[in-house]
């Protein structure tokens, strides 16, 4: 889990072009949107692409997206659940 969270932090920085940030600056449990990293709707869509491309996790509805993309930890939890399915 922790390793996956670390990987996700790297991938988030890379896919969202957060150049000035390091993985340590992203809290695992802080909401990614609004507060936290101050991400926006395009970032959310890009994270959906990331999850599908790297982890095969498909998100179809906005409701589902909100839950999965809440924090780095919720992303990791959903990836693990998807793997075990």
């Amino acid at each position: 889990m922790e390793e996956l969270i670390q990987n996700l932090k790297h991938e988030i920085i890379e896919s969202l072009n957060l150049e000035d940030m390091t993985p340590d600056q992203i809290e695992s449990d802080t909401p990614l949107f609004v507060e936290g990293l101050g991400l926006d709707s395009i970032d959310a869509l890009e994270l959906i692409v990331l999850l599908e491309k790297k982890y095969g996790l498909k998100i179809d509805t906005a409701e589902e997206g909100k839950k999965v993309l809440y924090s780095v930890r919720t992303m990791a939890e959903n990836i693990i659940r998807h793997r075990n399915q």
Partner: peptide, 9 residues
Amino acid sequence: YFPSPSVFV
């Protein structure tokens, strides 16, 4: 096939 929204915009 992973069209990127942040590139498309």
